[in-house]
Amino acid sequence: MTELLGNLSRDRVFYLLVAPFAALTILLGIWPILLSIQVSFTASATALRPNPTYVGFANYLAVLSDSIFLASLWRTLLYTVLSVIANLAFALGFAILLDSTLLKRGNLFFRLAIFLPVITPDVAGYVVWRWLYDRSFGALNAALELLGLPAFGGLSSVDTALLSILIAELWHHAGFYMIIFLANLSIRDRALEEAAQIDGATTWQRWRYVILPQLRPALVINTVYALIQFLKTFTVVVVMTKGGPNDQTNFVSYYAYQLFDQARYGEATAMATILFAIVIGLSLTAYRIGDREPGR
């Protein structure tokens, strides 16, 4: 105890400086999450009153027996897997291209071009994508018509809506992941590659066994970040499809939001809590797997 007090006293300046940020984190970060979890245990009709009626796990049971929620959860997971793979593969491929000697001329232009969508306000970007996909005046179908190709169903077809928003999100996010990969590529130990080359390793072997292991930090951080990002997919749905057509893009975040609109606060926050648990669980798992030392 005396030792603890001694440490506190010794580090008092540190704790003093950290205190405001810790308080802000608790107030603006943790407190709303706890409140939301609390609401998930209340009856919706009384959820926002000073003395709500607590209903135990009734909202969770209702949500888990709701076939629309289960379908939207499955859809969210599928979309997340597809998006994480597509975004990381595209970003890694583009980063490798920019890091190579193939794109020496215009390198800065391409870096800017791929990163600009990241800093473009997402709503504005998705509105433009919605127009591009529009079946009556969109540029995409106009181009396909010029080429004599069949029309693309875009956002209004149940077969293509998911793919359409995946492409729009790829455009918006891939630049961010690419920058992380590019930063990691620029600090790798090139001497190892030279040594491997001298030892007779092929280009593929150099990539597989020398460069890729060095990209592990970028892969881990990008995977975790992308998992969080796509599990929570919301804005693109609000702007482009509103969950349609026929629920094909109705992800958990948007479905919970729809329930808020029907004043079903208890079930909506139960859904949000389930999603929160999945995000935390998957992110920590991905981080643990990525953080393991090779060979262990």
Binding site: D134, S136, G154, L155, S156, M240, K242, G244, P245
Partner: peptide
């Protein structure tokens, strides 16, 4: 109606009206 109407809410409906379509 426009083939995209299935995804149209108030804002998009107004765009069709005010855009002269």
């Amino acid at each position: 109606v426009s083939p995209d109407t299935i995804n149209h809410s108030f804002a998009e409906m107004y765009q069709v009206i005010e855009g002269g379509r």
